[in-house]
Amino acid sequence: MLDIFTRLADWLIYGLAGLDPASKWDSSLHFFIEDTTKIFALLVVMIFVIALARAYLDLERVRDYIQNKNRFCGYGLGASFGAITPFCSCSSIPLFLGFTSAGIPLGITMAFLFTSPIINEVAVIMLWSLLGWEFTLVYVVIGMAVGIGGGMILDALKGERWLKDFTAKAYQQASNTPQSDVPAPKAPSLSMKERHVFARNELKEIVARIWKWIIIGVGLGAALHGFVPDGWFADNLGSGQWWNVPVAVFAGLPLYSNATGVIPIMESLILKGLPVGTTLAFCMSTVAASFPEFIMLKQVMQWRLLGTIFVILLTNFMIVGWLINLLSPWLFSGFAR
């Protein structure tokens, strides 16, 4: 079904514009047109459908739900809700405080915050359309694992020692006083019309927020696609020496992007022969470890905690990279080299 976009790009570039399929510009342009049309078409449809189904999952109810679960389910739930809850990074402080002051352990809150930027419906749709479902599945599993693992390590280190005073106090209070069984606020029941309005607003807001990222991401991906010779990574970076992964993680750090901008670049990197694990490590580091967000979290925690979280994340990305490189011959017989 998705080849109509390939054919559309064929028709526009080779038919209408009459470009030569062998030139570099041309294969870049083809990549650009095929991917942007495909991504936008799928996004518009899928965001709307998902928003319809999801209207309206609110954070208070998510919190109450997690609060009443045992600790070990908690990590998984934290990461799952992080993945499905629509969430803007500027809400991370209030969310952090809301969870913490409800007595939810730090590790569970952080599992939510780690997973949230890595997995969202936009990322999943894009991965699926560009790299196929096997890859998407691996990506989601890894994203959750990074979140859950990060949260558990943080609790094992007793990270809550290094919260800011007022946050720590709120957390203590909540954990000492047994939570009363206040029922979760009732779900506002929405009529079909209200759901449509919600979905339409959601669509407008998400597209307005991400269209630039898609253009930039696909543009860079297209440039890589046309101008970097096949096999360049294998020739210049070696094919999968262990140090490639840390290099990729550190290279991703200063790049501040969201999943939307990075996924088209991943597609190109993989097609050009960068090992899948290395590519994933680069992508996660770009998306989930961004300085602006870390600086924001400084408002509620001490430097020590912030530093610890940072180290845990980077270590996790490297482990993911190595592990996937090791396993990729079995995971992706299709395109991994």
Binding site: L59, S91, I93, P94, L95, L97, F166
Partner: peptide, 15 residues
Amino acid sequence: DPAAIMGYKVMATPG
């Protein structure tokens, strides 16, 4: 101020 925002028990901003 995060402490003030927490005082209102807001979890999703803007509130």
